[in-house]
Design a protein around this nucleic acid. Structure first.
Lengths: 338, 338
DNA sequence: ACTGGCACTTGCACTCCTAGAGTGCCAGTT
DNA sequence: AACTGGCACTCTAGGAGTGCAAGTGCCAGT
């Protein structure tokens, strides 16, 4: 099939270009790959590929380089899954196993992922939205202030201090706490918010102000997206691979890496599976030239969080995807066990 | 005084070089500054300055640039304090005032400092070691596990879950908590650790295992330096100013910025006042070419934390020092008030 | 102690040129 | 119809050569 060979050519171009970082010409192609035809034939195929927008020539007498569309095709239909080597896997495992708490796991994941891929690694802290309520605690502090603590199944502890404006009767806090626990324990955070709303009406009108203040705070904490927003970034030193021109290639990426909102958007809303976003697909001006490989991991066998890498579009997609996937699995496993 | 004029020449060289980024020659110097002598005279002074190691010539027919020693002299004896403009000050104040919690204050400080100085900004989270204990809470979770919460005067909340190995009698936790609070409330963290140690012996031998487990954890939390290690970094996009060569100039800095230990060391142990470290003075291989301006701020009128900037040695020291100082003052004030 | 002048050095920007890589196309072959 | 070999053409990277401008060091003169 001619179609078939054209795809082989595209694959070869992507592979060679990723490796050499230089435009690849027809002659080099027949030399390095067993395509069984002459360079002239390859040239014809290349013209076709260029017409279809998969590759482009920087200038007349240079070879071709893949376009975003070309990489996309490569990732979707041509890339062969490349498994991580055993030493690599073992390295991930032992390095992550040494972690002492959730934060440490995340920090280490970023490091190992950056090292493995030679790219910029980003790891989202375990998300709250799908975790369940493991414990709620109300602590009366001095005067009218109350400390509200929530522990989730993902091991996160959120706390907040609020001022009720009045000193609550001591037993009210105890009573309220036990009712809150009864209503929300084991519930997912969004569901728990609903249960709380129903709770208010079961109290004496006199107690309502206090109850409502606390319950509102709790509901906020449950639906608070801020904890979802914590993201660790590492391996920015690898940005050298983006190219020489700092202002057009590197600076935008560095700036994007400092914006939580952008990072979250990059990691994406993918429900599961490994996602690749190439160049313009990232939806960010400064990230043409960059590609994002992201996936989800599951800190407690149920809820979801994201992690991934940012690298130049001319990256080794199979390896990167393998590394991202592997780290995600190990992180998920270790967090579930811990 | 000849000595005097030489210093003026050095000052002029530093100022011009910082502004133009190009080696400055004797002729340009007499044109731009009112030195009252001819370029030939300046040349003689330059030779002297070069002999003493304050300036150096990249090659025979280029102007001179300051050495680390030259910058050091400039900072120590020549720099005139440059006050921040009123709009700048107001910008800092309003931007920081909008913060909702400690983390937010730190995040915003990094941003504003980076923007103000056009450099990489680093801000240490408020330190625990000098803060005092504001509250301690013990919460029995399911089974034998206990949640230990500490709130400090700097507004930080630390928590940890431990497994006692046995289910503690309920009243023991209550009793223990009240005794701990009585012993440590208002104490500085290191002192609080001592008080805890004394506490163990006041309990029944039967309760000792539980008490000791909890107390040890608490003591760990008090003396835990990990919270001291949290540092926010921002403005890495400004690294462009370091120069064109990524691998020798930028990458080492980026890598240093990812190492908490290095950052802590850079911010330094200075007890107070603004410190400048130039090139090799930073004590880090990759940071020749970089200078660190750091100072302390006081989150609660007593304890200390650090913040500062990292920039190329050819930076505008007076402005940077002014900005660092100003941000430190505002951050300290806002945290004390909050 | 300072100045003007001068010979000397050096990097930079510019032009010019060539070698090499790669292309597109076409006529010929299977 | 698909492939191939050959050829003329295009373009860039890199080297050599050149003139210019900036800057220096030194010295004799004020």
């Amino acid at each position: 099939m001619i179609e078939d060979r054209r795809l082989q050519v595209l694959r070869a171009i992507v592979e060679d270009y990723v490796q050499t970082q230089e435009p690849v010409g027809s002659k080099a192609l027949v030399e390095r790959h067993q395509l069984g035809v002459s360079s002239a034939t390859i040239r014809n195929d290349m013209v076709a590929l260029e017409d279809e927008g998969y590759i482009t020539a920087p200038h007349t007498s240079a070879g071709r380089i893949p376009t975003d569309k070309g990489y996309r095709m490569f990732v979707d239909r041509l890339a062969e899954v490349k498994a991580l080597s055993v030493p690599e896997r073992r390295a991930i495992e032992t390095f992550l196993t040494g972690a002492v708490d959730v934060d440490d796991v995340v920090t280490r994941s970023v490091k190992v992922l950056a090292q493995l891929t030679n790219q910029v690694a980003i790891v989202q802290y375990p998300s709250l939205t799908r975790s369940t309520v493991r414990h709620v605690e109300l602590v009366g502090l001095d005067g009218s202030r109350v400390l509200v603590v929530v522990i989730t199944s993902s091991g996160r502890v959120e706390q907040r201090t609020i001022d009720l404006g009045q000193v609550p009767p001591d037993n009210l806090l105890v009573d309220l706490k036990s009712r809150i626990v009864r209503a929300t324990l084991g519930e997912r955070l969004p569901d728990a918010s609903w249960r709380l709303a129903e709770l208010i009406e079961t109290f004496e009108p006199a107690d309502r102000p206090v109850v409502s203040a606390i319950v509102t705070t709790l509901a906020n904490m449950f639906s608070n997206e801020k904890s979802d927003e914590r993201i660790a970034v590492g391996g920015t030193g690898n940005l050298a691979r983006f190219g020489a021109d700092f202002d057009t290639a590197i600076r935008p990426v560095l700036e994007a890496m400092e914006e939580q909102v952008v990072l979250l958007h990059l990691l994406g809303e993918a429900s599961s599976g490994t996602t690749v976003r190439i160049g313009h697909e990232t939806g960010h001006e400064g990230l043409v030239g960059a590609a994002v490989v992201s996936t989800t991991y599951s800190p407690d066998g149920d809820s979801l969080a994201h992690l991934g890498t940012v690298g130049p579009t001319r990256m080794d997609y199979p390896s990167t995807m393998a590394a991202v996937g592997a780290v995600a699995r190990y992180v998920g496993r270790i967090l579930s066990e811990g």
